Every structure is written in structure tokens, then in C-alpha cells.
Computed example of a mutant assay.
Amino acid sequence: MRAIPAIDLREGACVQLVGGSYAEERVRVKDPLEALARWRAHGFTSFHVVDLDAALGRGTNASVIARLVAAAPGLVFSVGGGVRDSERVATLIEGGASTVVVGTRAVEDLAWLEDVASRFPGRVLVAADVKGREVVTRGWTEGSGQDIAPVLAMFARLPLAGLLVTAVHKEGRMGGVDLALMREVVDASPHPVVASGGVTTLEDLRALDAAGVQGAVIGMALYTGRLDASAVAREFAE
């Protein structure tokens, strides 16, 4: 399993929020390139970049994303946040993103997802953001009314890069992961699973690894020093 530092973008800065709430920002790094350099120095080679402003329709950090990807050619970047049209998917891939994360439109418009996945096979990562068991959309602000199980079934036959499953109810709280949810997703989906939300300890990472998760996004615990970045990278950077 690979550990993947999160670089969440808000107003041009790298931030960490609790539960995705703009009112609960706990960490801010003014220059996201500084955050990227910090995690690269520890030995991480994969990064998860999210445009929070685009996800909520409050603006864009497209220029920052372009700078991040250009600064580290050869590394692995998954990029998402407000990606709701095929042109943006193409632009991100052409700009160097290894995979592009799509969430809201993927859940709401399966025909569009089928089209974009067929155009870019193995390059689209679908975000299934879950609060409790309900899939949520639009930057985690709206409930879809759908349980995670049938949503996973919708995606099963598509040529995706994988699924990014975020336990929103765990996000940023440093209280551990929703291991039962991640086990269920791994068992139900034919696609590789990347887990996010609540990673706090090396034991969390080891448990996700044992459950069959192929990647784990880490945010708050790294930025606050709760997790030893060097120790994580030694065990899970590759």
C-alpha cells in the first residue's frame, strides 16, 4: 500500500479542514509548493491534490495545480475538486496529472462518467465520499440519498483507475479510520481502492493495508506532526 500526502488547496494556500468544513480550518501553509517540497524530502512520491474552492463553486486554484505538477515531473499526482466536464479532465491529464478525480458528476451522471472513462481508460479515479453510509456530493455539502453499496455497483464495469473512498465523518478528526467501510468497499469493488479520512497512526495504515486498500491519503496527521512523516514514508512510500 502507498501512503499519499494530501495537498488541499483553498485561496491559493494548502490547508487542512475538519470534516470538510470551511469554518474549521486547522492548518494553512501559504505556499503549496513548500508543502510539496516537505513531503518529497521525506521520500513520498505520490500526492493527492484537491481544489476545494472549485469543489464548492467558490473559485479555482488551477494555476496552483499547474505549478505543483510542473515542479515535480515524474511523480504521481491525483488531481480533483470540481472536475465536472470532460475538457477539464483532458486539461489535467495533458498538464501532467497521473489520474483525475471526479466525484459529483460521476455520481449524478453515469452516462457522462462512462464516456469520460472510455476516453481516458485507467486515468479516471472516482471519488465516493461517504458520510455514515450515504454518498455525498458538491464538496461534501449535499447528500445524494444513495447508499454506498449500489453506487459501487454502478461503477463496477467501467475502466477506472480506481475508487477514492473518503469517510467524511472521519476526515480531519484524527480519530482513526472507518475500517469496516473500507473492508466493505474492497470486497465489493473490482477496482483498486484508495482510502481517505481519519488516518492517524501507523496502525491505521497497517490495518488498511491488511484490508486490501492500495493507497491511503493522509492529511491532518501529517501536517500537525501526529504522524512521523519519515516513518510513514519508510514503510509506505512505495
Rank of each mutant, 00 (worst) to 15 (best):
Y22G: 10
V136T: 02
T45Q: 12
S98A: 13
L75G: 04
L33S: 02
T104G: 11
G132H: 05
G81R: 07
V101W: 15
G103N: 11
L36N: 00
H48R: 11
V50W: 10
D51Q: 06
F120S: 04
G132T: 02
L52W: 13
A37F: 05
V89L: 07
R84L: 12
V79N: 03
V50C: 05
V83F: 10
D85E: 13
R84C: 08
Y22M: 14
V50Y: 01
I7T: 01
V107N: 08
L75F: 09
A35C: 03
P5K: 09
D53H: 00
R38D: 00
A71C: 09
V124S: 05
P32L: 06
D85V: 10
P121N: 09
R105V: 13
E134F: 03
E142K: 07
T104C: 11
V83T: 08
A71H: 11
V126H: 03
I65Y: 11
G43C: 06
V124D: 08
E24S: 14
W112K: 04
P32M: 06
E134P: 01
R84V: 07
S118I: 06
A62E: 13
A128V: 15
G12T: 05
S63I: 12
I93V: 12
S118L: 14
E11N: 01
E114M: 07
I93Y: 04
R67W: 01
V69K: 05
I93R: 12
G132P: 05
E134T: 07
T60F: 05
E142N: 06
D109I: 13
V107K: 10
D85I: 12
L68T: 02
R26V: 15
V135I: 09
Q16V: 11
T137F: 09
R123L: 03
V29F: 02
E87L: 12
S63G: 11
V64S: 00
D53A: 11
R133E: 04
V29M: 00
R38N: 04
R26N: 12
G57K: 07
V100I: 13
G139K: 04
G19C: 13
G59F: 14
E11A: 12
V107W: 05
D8K: 02
L56A: 15
E24A: 15
R133F: 02
